[in-house]
Design a protein around this nucleic acid. Structure first.
Length: 187
DNA sequence: CACAGGATATACT
DNA sequence: GTATATCCTGTGA
């Protein structure tokens, strides 16, 4: 179990170390295989133009979950990082399912293991993450984030689904994983 | 395999 | 009104 101090660092450092870490909500989840870093000076980041009602959590203390609605349909979850007050966060994009697969299949309505958590909206549905979790601390017993002992090989490339700052290679993935939301080509 | 289109909350023009 | 840190389904190459 990693504590709050894990997130008291630069978003890119945290992003790399999250690859291979376990992420469970109420005992359901898996191994993190894909994330994206969002920095406050980055035009594609929600916090870039200042605080709003929706992104207020990003401006709060590190080690908390920022959950927002995407395209009016899906939920997406971020981990807020240091420094506090500037809105730096890591978007969790994909997991390799390891815990309670049957429950995730029921929630997602699909059988294919690779479709359970391969995408930010998908993994929130599989782990039952909603706006109710926005602002919650990641060291509560409800959320479980545990770092790996091994040192996984991390690939870095351009981010997905944005039109601004597309040249920044701030998407991080576990090399060779079958559970990425889409193939990750090194930038 | 590669698209196009729909669902629809929130923020910006 | 238009765009978006998405996903699913349908069509066609």
């Amino acid at each position: 179990m990693i504590g709050r101090q894990f997130f008291d660092r630069d978003v890119h450092e945290v992003a790399v170390e999250l690859i291979g870490a376990a992420f469970l909500v109420d005992g359901v989840g898996g191994k993190i295989v894909e994330v994206e870093a969002y920095h406050h000076e980055d035009p594609a980041a929600h916090g870039y133009r200042g605080r709003t009602e929706r992104n207020a959590t990003m401006f709060g203390p590190p080690g908390h979950a920022y959950v927002y609605r995407s395209y009016g349909i899906h939920w997406c979850v971020n981990f807020v990082c240091e420094p506090e007050g500037v809105a730096d966060a890591v978007l969790i994009r994909a997991l390799e399912p390891t815990h309670k697969l049957s429950l995730m299949r029921r929630r997602r309505g699909v059988e294919d293991e690779r479709a359970l958590c391969s995408g930010p909206g998908r993994l929130c549905q599989a782990l039952a993450i909603t706006g109710a979790h926005d602002g919650l601390a990641l060291d509560l017993s409800f959320f479980q984030v545990a770092a790996t002992t091994e040192k996984p090989e991390v690939v870095r490339g351009p981010r997905v689904g944005i039109s601004r700052a597309t040249d920044l290679p701030w998407r991080y993935g576990l090399a060779g994983s079958r559970y990425l939301s889409r193939t990750l080509r090194p930038a």
